[in-house]
């Protein structure tokens, strides 16, 4: 909290609150919407050998290696109003991403995707395929084995991957600002707001407040992941 009596406080407060709420919404939507794709991609990479597997692996990891600005620019080209995918989405579903908070969520999801897939893939690779074979001999079909054996055993990895992705989405800046700009109330997430506050004279206090909020949210996410992870692990490994 800022010291009371600060003259800039009443003017800055709405902007801060707006950025925090928007960031939470963007990160949450980005994480939840990409989770099914993350699980599917992790499973494909961990369990299947198919032509193009290396290409898929590279594609997934690309946002981790490319400068975020490049990723943002590619998104802008593809999903902008005139972009091939952006125009199609707009015409078919009436979904517009350019300069909208949904676009910010897409950028955050793409940037967080490699981290999410990595965590979940490791969990898939740790599942003993002999347990799945045992389940099949007991009469469980492929999808049932997946739902009753594989998925429960992968759960800690999914939780870890989701929280990692959420934290990454909260902090995404470069791709977001390139793709959807920095529009207050629409695409100005916490990092964009901090950047904007630092550009204006007298904005340091507000920037500091947002930095503190960021730290609190990051720590909360970390503790939540530890807690959930420990609970899930205990349930799976069994309390001896």
């Amino acid at each position: 909290m800022l010291p009371p009596g600060s003259e800039t406080w009443p003017e800055l407060w709405p902007g801060i609150r707006e950025a925090v709420i928007l960031s939470l919404r963007v990160a949450l939507v980005a994480t939840l919407a990409s989770l099914p794709f993350g699980i599917a991609t992790a499973w494909l990479l961990a369990r299947r050998r198919f032509p193009g597997r290396a290409v898929l692996n590279g594609l997934v990891h690309l946002p981790l290696i490319l400068p975020p600005v490049v990723t943002g620019y590619v998104l802008l080209v593809l999903f902008g109003r005139q972009g091939p995918l952006g125009a199609a989405l707009d015409q078919l579903f009436g979904i517009s991403l350019a300069f909208r908070w949904t676009g910010a969520a897409l950028a955050a999801a793409i940037m967080a995707f490699p981290l999410m897939v990595r965590a979940i893939r490791l969990a898939f690779e740790a599942v003993d395929p002999r347990l799945e074979a045992a389940a099949a001999t007991l009469g469980a079909s492929g999808p049932r084995v997946f739902a009753t054996v594989t998925l429960p055993l992968v759960a800690p990895g999914i939780v870890a991957g989701a929280i990692l992705a959420f934290a990454k989405a909260m902090g995404e800046f470069g791709a977001t600002i390139t793709f959807v700009s920095n529009i207050p109330g629409e695409t100005r997430t916490i990092p964009s707001a901090i950047y904007a506050f630092l550009q204006a004279p007298g904005g340091e206090r507000a920037a500091l407040a947002l930095v503190l909020v960021s730290v609190v949210i990051a720590l909360a996410a970390l503790f939540a992941s530890e807690w959930v992870g420990a609970r899930v692990a205990r349930r799976i490994r069994g309390a001896a």
């Binding site: 003993d128 002999r130 074979a133 045992a134 054996v149 349930r235 799976i236």
Partner: peptide, 12 residues
């Protein structure tokens, strides 16, 4: 009904 060399019990 298969009994493997290891018990292969489901840990969860």
């Amino acid at each position: 009904g298969v009994v493997f060399q290891e018990p292969r019990l489901f840990p969860h």
